[in-house]
């Protein structure tokens, strides 16, 4: 397509939107609603994946020892665990450290109760290793390995937590993607309807263009531009709206809610919108183009 034909298509496409103001507005409106919902789901998906990933890197396996296991044996077990290629990090926590941590967490406002324990350490047999894995996929193997080490009393592996998180992640992914596909189909249908109206409004002009010798591209160009512009505007508006809402939500969640649930930390807007913005814009323009293309192919046989 020549530059002249391209600029004609852009001009006529914009004019057509202006001429069919009501239909164009309705299309933009539905696109905004669809892409807004899509953006919400995508933002949830991106954040949830992030939570799962960070949970994976922070979840540790605790290894406790029998009463009669000597410090030398414990040190050797630590070296053996560290030598495993699946292991990212091994930290030793003595029974005294475990008690100090527990006391500061639960008795910091109750000095009298803490004093009643005297010098006794209720967690006296709680020397442990905190094992962090490179990938949670190896969790089962390592847990089995740790359980079979002589001198190990108990292995606390948060397997069920991880499994639940991963299952929830899968459910959210599948349901979000299904909803996104449905919304996309609805949007294509709506754009297609708008283009049908635009074609019927310009029926006479199209007939004349055909007789004068306009090429296929020349006749179809403005309708494709119209669909793409509606798609672009329909994506830009919800992106702006989502950005504003996300900032508010981010402040609320990261300042207040995450105090109660430390794992619930939202990603920064920059990190979310670097994915969300191009996806929404590409989808908006793509839906607009697809809707127009389907319609002009069906209704504009040159």
């Amino acid at each position: 397509m020549s530059f002249k034909a391209f600029s004609y298509s852009v001009k006529q496409g914009l004019l057509s939107i202006k001429r069919n103001k009501m239909f164009s507005l309705a299309s933009v409106g539905t696109m905004v609603a669809c892409l807004f919902m899509l953006g919400v789901f995508l933002a949830i998906l991106i954040n949830f994946r992030n939570i799962v990933n960070s949970a994976e890197s922070t979840i540790t396996i605790s290894v406790y020892f029998n009463k009669d296991t000597t410090p030398e044996q414990i040190a050797q077990i630590g070296r053996d665990i560290s030598a495993r290629k699946e292991v990212a990090n091994v930290t030793y926590k003595s029974a005294d450290d475990a008690w100090k941590e527990f006391a500061s967490q639960y008795y910091s406002n109750n000095e009298d109760l803490l004093a009643s324990f005297g010098d006794e350490n209720p967690l006296g047999e709680s020397d442990s290793y905190m094992v962090t894995l490179k990938s949670m996929a190896d969790q089962e193997n390592i847990t089995n390995y740790l359980n079979n080490i002589t001198g190990v009393r108990y292995v606390n592996s948060p397997q069920s937590t991880m499994e639940s998180l991963q299952r929830l992640n899968a459910i959210i992914s599948v349901s979000s993607i299904s909803l996104i596909v449905i919304l996309l189909l609805v949007s294509v249908f709506l754009i297609s309807n708008t283009v049908v109206v635009a074609i019927s409004v310009r029926k006479e002009e199209i007939a004349i263009m055909r007789l004068i010798g306009a090429t296929d591209h020349f006749i179809r160009g403005p309708f494709i531009v119209e669909g793409m512009v509606i798609g672009f505007v329909g994506a830009l508006l919800p992106l702006g709206l989502l950005f504003g809402l996300y900032e508010v939500l981010l402040k609320l969640v990261n300042d207040d809610i995450s105090q109660m649930a430390s794992w619930l930390m939202l990603m920064s807007p920059g990190k979310v919108f670097i994915i969300l913005a191009p996806v929404c814009l590409a989808l908006g323009v793509g839906i607009g183009m697809a809707g127009s293309l389907i319609t002009v192919h069906r209704h504009l046989k040159v």
Binding site: I212, G213, T215, V302
Partner: peptide, 17 residues
Amino acid sequence: PYIRRQIGTVFQDFRLL
């Protein structure tokens, strides 16, 4: 279209925009 460009058409109902 390239054949039609070599033919100028005039109709009874004028067909003006």
